[in-house]
C-alpha cells in the first residue's frame, strides 16, 4: 500500500467521522442529503461482499466493516433519531436518485471485469459511488449556505477521491500489471464532480469567509 492510498483511506475515514461528529454534537443533519447517504450505504454493501469470499488484510477487513457500520448508522440516525430526523432538509433533497441507481446497474450489466454476481455488483458499486455525491452537491447548492462541518465533510470526501487518483498513477508506474480501467475512469468522473465545490471551498478559505455556493 502506498502513501497516497493510505492518506486517501484516512481522509475518507475523517470525512465520515466529521459527519458523525456533526450529527452527534449538533443533533442535526441539516445540509446533509439522506439520498447520498443511502447510496453510500448501498455502495459499501454491494462492494464489500468479498468480505465473505476473499481475505486481503486485517486493515482491509476492518476498514470495510467500519465503512458499512458507519454508513448504516448515519442512515439510521437521519431516518429514525427523533431529533436528527426533524432537521433533515427533505424539501431540498429532491434529486431523483433512483435514476442514478438504474443507470449504474445498467452500466454494470454492460461493463464489468467478469460476468459474475459479485463482479457485476462490484462494478455497480464503483459506478454508483462515482455519482452518489450528486444529491449532496445539489442540496448544498440549493440551500446556498454551507455550515462549517458539512463543508469540511464534503472537502475531505473530495480529498479522498483526489488521493486515490494519485494512488493509481503511482501504482501504474510501480506495477505495470495494474490496470483498473473501471475504477480509474469512474474515479476520474467522481473527482471531477467535486471541482466546482473545491473552487468555492478554496475561495472561502483564502478570504477567510463562510463557504457559500452560488445559486
Amino acid at each position: 500500500m502506498n502513501i497516497f492510498r493510505f492518506l486517501g483511506d484516512m481522509t475518507h475515514l475523517i470525512s465520515i467521522l466529521i459527519l458523525l461528529l456533526k450529527i452527534y454534537a449538533t443533533k442535526s443533519c441539516s445540509g446533509i442529503s439522506l439520498k447520498t447517504q443511502e447510496l453510500y450505504a448501498l455502495v459499501f454493501l454491494t462492494r464489500y461482499l468479498d468480505l465473505f469470499t476473499d481475505f486481503i488484510s486485517v486493515y482491509n477487513t476492518v476498514m470495510k466493516l467500519v465503512f458499512i457500520a458507519s454508513s448504516l448508522a448515519i442512515v439510521w440516525c437521519m431516518r429514525n433519531h427523533p431529533l436528527v430526523r426533524r432537521s433533515y432538509d427533505k424539501q431540498l433533497d429532491t434529486f431523483r436518485h433512483y435514476f442514478l441507481l438504474l443507470a449504474s446497474f445498467l452500466l454494470a450489466l454492460l461493463l464489468h471485469e467478469k460476468f459474475a454476481f459479485q463482479e457485476v455488483l462490484w462494478a455497480f458499486s464503483i459506478y454508483l459511488e462515482a455519482v452518489a455525491i450528486l444529491p449532496q452537491l445539489v442540496l448544498l447548492q440549493r440551500s446556498g449556505n454551507v455550515d462549517n462541518l458539512t463543508g469540511q465533510y464534503v472537502f475531505f470526501l473530495g480529498a479522498y477521491r483526489a488521493l486515490y487518483i494519485f494512488n493509481w498513477i503511482y501504482r501504474y508506474f510501480i506495477d505495470p500489471h495494474f490496470t483498473r480501467w473501471i475504477a480509474c475512469v469512474s474515479g476520474l468522473v467522481q473527482t471531477a464532480l467535486y471541482a466546482d465545490f473545491f473552487y468555492y471551498y478554496f475561495i472561502s478559505w483564502k478570504n477567510n469567509a463562510k463557504l457559500q455556493l452560488p445559486a
Binding site: R5, D50, E113, W122, D175
Partner: peptide
Amino acid sequence: GETNTTHDEL
C-alpha cells in the same frame, strides 16, 4: 501476485 478478480482497494 494480484489476480484480476481481487479488488484490494476500498
